[in-house]
Design a protein around this nucleic acid. Sequence first.
DNA 1: CGAGTTGCGTTACGTTGTAACGGGTGCCAT
DNA 2: ATGGCACCCGTTACAACGTAACGCAACTCG
Lengths: 144, 144
Amino acid sequence: MTDETHAHDQTHRHERPLTKNQALVMGVLDAADGPLSAYTILDALRESGFRAPLQVYRALDKLVAFGMVHRLESLNAFVPCRHDDGAAHKSAAFTICESCGKVTEIADAALTARLEALSAESGFSLRRTTVELRGLCEDCRKAA
Amino acid sequence: MTDETHAHDQTHRHERPLTKNQALVMGVLDAADGPLSAYTILDALRESGFRAPLQVYRALDKLVAFGMVHRLESLNAFVPCRHDDGAAHKSAAFTICESCGKVTEIADAALTARLEALSAESGFSLRRTTVELRGLCEDCRKAA
DNA sequence: CGAGTTGCGTTACGTTGTAACGGGTGCCAT
DNA sequence: ATGGCACCCGTTACAACGTAACGCAACTCG
């Protein structure tokens, strides 16, 4: 085998050249309708030859660094970024429904500005943010 | 032994009657100068008779519910709440220094308002928030 | 060519969190 | 008072999440 490092572009609008493993993981995330844990991704890729968690975690680390995937800290799970790559990635916010599990990504300039202002006030050099809102989505609230 | 359920008030300003285990866990957190993992707490309490993680997790669940402790999702760790109990607890924010590990709790009305407005806009019924800002604290930024 | 960087696969292990069972205690409504 | 209920507790065992360390292959850039 000659070259494994440049692979299929996965019909994803981001032009970055993903490796084979990164493309496989990204494909699973794109096909899912909600957040997936690393181990769920691993199980989905066993038939593609994945055998160990590190294969998933290494790919996820890169995809997160590329801004193509977000990690949801309060769920230990991952979702594809649904916004125009890069821009809002540093300060994305999420709503997480505690009833149905639905996750929605929110980009809000005012929120970003406030977080940056708070950091600046305390001399803090901000690298990345985690903002996760837990509660009930509209549908579940109505149903209750 | 007759009554284990009401215990020492731990010189903490909150008046809630903690159980023995809750008071022990709270004591360890108050004495620490940074976030502690559940297993670190467990080890600190082995000489007090703790033997299993559940003893720690059950106490932590209550302390978090009481608003006396925050969970830092991105660290899998816990810190005592340093603010006037209750009020700002639902929407506390934290800065986390990725160099020295220092954690600072921030209460900011404008941030809270923005998060609530965002929730309202999308029909989301907000129960609790996780806001964690990662980067470098002032000291570490200067040192770099 | 040689050194550095990145990706890959594997084994083994460390850390974090929970399920399920049984028991004790206080409360309070019947 | 006694039976139910809610809460707290301790234990065993296990599930879920994440990483260290090793060796190897390939590409890049001097």
